[in-house]
Amino acid sequence: MDETGKELVLALYDYQEKSPREVTMKKGDILTLLNSTNKDSWKVEVKITVNGKTYERQGFVPAAYVKKL
């Protein structure tokens, strides 16, 4: 869990989004878990840094590609 009590997951593999509802992640990324009720895909939040500014983006990733921490 992070400092706000949200559950975290670790990306086990790289994943490139295939639709606007998904998010891209790299192996080793730590993501905030938002919903894990679907056995196939979990909703997560990723933090992306562009030019020194951090943005948050929500979307789905394959459940088999992440592990709860």
Rank of each mutant, 00 (worst) to 15 (best):
residue 47 K to D: 02
residue 16 Q to W: 11
residue 29 D to E: 08
residue 41 S to L: 15
residue 3 E to V: 13
residue 6 K to A: 11
residue 5 G to T: 13
residue 53 K to R: 12
residue 48 I to G: 04
residue 35 N to S: 12
residue 54 T to V: 13
residue 3 E to H: 14
residue 2 D to H: 14
residue 12 L to F: 04
residue 1 M to Y: 12
residue 48 I to N: 05
residue 40 D to G: 07
residue 12 L to H: 00
residue 13 Y to T: 08
residue 27 K to C: 08
residue 15 Y to W: 06
residue 20 P to G: 08
residue 69 L to P: 02
residue 42 W to F: 05
residue 59 G to W: 06
residue 37 T to G: 09
residue 3 E to R: 11
residue 23 V to D: 02
residue 69 L to H: 04
residue 55 Y to A: 07
residue 37 T to H: 11
residue 23 V to C: 07
residue 56 E to F: 15
residue 69 L to E: 01
residue 42 W to E: 00
residue 19 S to R: 06
residue 67 K to V: 15
residue 68 K to D: 03
residue 40 D to W: 14
residue 32 T to G: 06
residue 21 R to W: 15
residue 8 L to R: 10
residue 38 N to I: 05
residue 43 K to V: 13
residue 31 L to D: 01
residue 39 K to Y: 08
residue 24 T to A: 06
residue 41 S to P: 02
residue 60 F to P: 00
residue 22 E to T: 04
residue 12 L to N: 01
residue 38 N to Y: 08
residue 55 Y to K: 08
residue 17 E to H: 08
residue 9 V to W: 04
residue 40 D to H: 14
residue 69 L to A: 04
residue 37 T to R: 08
residue 62 P to V: 06
residue 43 K to H: 10
residue 47 K to G: 05
residue 15 Y to I: 01
residue 31 L to Q: 01
residue 16 Q to H: 13
residue 22 E to P: 05
residue 55 Y to H: 09
residue 45 E to P: 00
residue 33 L to E: 02
residue 5 G to V: 13
residue 29 D to C: 08
residue 22 E to A: 06
residue 18 K to F: 04
residue 51 N to A: 10
residue 3 E to K: 13
residue 29 D to V: 05
residue 63 A to F: 01
residue 20 P to V: 08
residue 27 K to M: 06
residue 65 Y to D: 03
residue 63 A to K: 06
residue 36 S to T: 09
residue 33 L to I: 03
residue 4 T to P: 12
residue 17 E to T: 08
residue 18 K to I: 06
residue 60 F to I: 04
residue 32 T to L: 14
residue 6 K to F: 10
residue 60 F to W: 15
residue 47 K to N: 08
residue 7 E to Q: 14
residue 16 Q to A: 11
residue 8 L to Y: 15
residue 45 E to D: 03
residue 22 E to F: 05
residue 68 K to C: 10
residue 64 A to T: 10
residue 44 V to L: 02
residue 65 Y to S: 10
residue 8 L to K: 11
residue 16 Q to F: 13
residue 63 A to S: 14
residue 17 E to M: 11
residue 61 V to G: 01
residue 9 V to Y: 06
residue 11 A to L: 05
residue 49 T to E: 10
residue 11 A to H: 03
residue 35 N to D: 15
residue 39 K to R: 11
residue 35 N to G: 06
residue 7 E to F: 11
residue 44 V to H: 00
residue 57 R to H: 06
residue 60 F to M: 09
residue 16 Q to N: 14
residue 46 V to I: 15
residue 12 L to E: 01
residue 7 E to H: 11
residue 20 P to I: 10
residue 12 L to Q: 03
residue 18 K to G: 08
residue 65 Y to G: 05
residue 38 N to W: 06
residue 29 D to A: 06
residue 62 P to L: 05
residue 53 K to M: 13
residue 22 E to I: 02
residue 38 N to R: 09
residue 48 I to Y: 14
residue 12 L to M: 08
residue 38 N to F: 07
residue 25 M to Q: 02
residue 59 G to D: 00
residue 30 I to Y: 04
residue 18 K to V: 07
residue 16 Q to L: 12
residue 50 V to G: 04
residue 54 T to L: 09
residue 62 P to R: 04
residue 61 V to M: 02
residue 24 T to L: 02
residue 6 K to R: 14
residue 68 K to R: 12
residue 11 A to G: 01
residue 46 V to S: 05
residue 67 K to Y: 08
residue 52 G to P: 00
residue 28 G to E: 02
residue 26 K to D: 01
residue 42 W to Q: 00
residue 37 T to Y: 08
residue 15 Y to N: 01
residue 69 L to W: 06
residue 13 Y to P: 01
residue 13 Y to W: 10
residue 60 F to C: 15
residue 47 K to Q: 11
residue 14 D to H: 05
residue 32 T to Q: 08
residue 1 M to Q: 13
residue 61 V to D: 02
residue 69 L to K: 02
residue 68 K to E: 05
residue 55 Y to M: 10
residue 9 V to E: 01
residue 66 V to G: 00
residue 66 V to F: 07
residue 36 S to I: 05
residue 42 W to Y: 05
residue 63 A to D: 03
residue 63 A to E: 03
residue 53 K to Q: 13
residue 64 A to W: 10
residue 28 G to A: 03
residue 61 V to A: 01
residue 69 L to I: 14
residue 50 V to L: 11
residue 54 T to R: 06
residue 29 D to F: 05
residue 20 P to C: 11
residue 11 A to I: 04
residue 56 E to L: 15
residue 4 T to Q: 13
residue 9 V to A: 08
residue 14 D to G: 04
residue 42 W to N: 00
residue 13 Y to E: 09
residue 6 K to W: 10
residue 41 S to T: 11
residue 58 Q to H: 07
residue 27 K to A: 11
residue 5 G to S: 13
residue 56 E to K: 15
residue 3 E to D: 13
residue 39 K to F: 08
residue 25 M to A: 00
residue 38 N to H: 09
residue 43 K to F: 15
residue 1 M to G: 13
residue 8 L to A: 05
residue 7 E to A: 10
residue 32 T to I: 15
residue 47 K to T: 13
residue 67 K to H: 09
residue 64 A to S: 13
residue 39 K to E: 10
residue 13 Y to S: 07
residue 63 A to L: 02
residue 60 F to K: 01
residue 26 K to L: 07
residue 53 K to Y: 12
residue 19 S to Q: 06
residue 6 K to N: 10
residue 15 Y to R: 00
residue 10 L to M: 14
residue 44 V to I: 06
residue 6 K to L: 12
residue 24 T to P: 07
residue 56 E to T: 15
residue 15 Y to V: 00
residue 42 W to L: 02
residue 50 V to N: 06
residue 30 I to K: 03
residue 66 V to S: 00
residue 9 V to R: 00
residue 65 Y to M: 12
residue 14 D to P: 04
residue 13 Y to Q: 13
residue 16 Q to T: 14
residue 8 L to I: 08
residue 47 K to H: 10
residue 50 V to W: 08
residue 21 R to N: 15
residue 47 K to W: 08
residue 9 V to I: 07
residue 38 N to G: 09
residue 67 K to D: 06
residue 11 A to K: 02
residue 54 T to W: 08
residue 25 M to V: 10
residue 41 S to Q: 14
residue 34 L to W: 03
residue 31 L to M: 14
residue 56 E to G: 13
residue 29 D to K: 00
residue 56 E to D: 11
residue 2 D to N: 14
residue 37 T to N: 12
residue 57 R to G: 03
residue 45 E to K: 12
residue 3 E to W: 13
residue 6 K to G: 11
residue 63 A to H: 02
residue 31 L to T: 00
residue 37 T to K: 09
residue 45 E to S: 15
residue 61 V to P: 01
residue 29 D to R: 01
residue 11 A to W: 03
residue 40 D to Y: 15
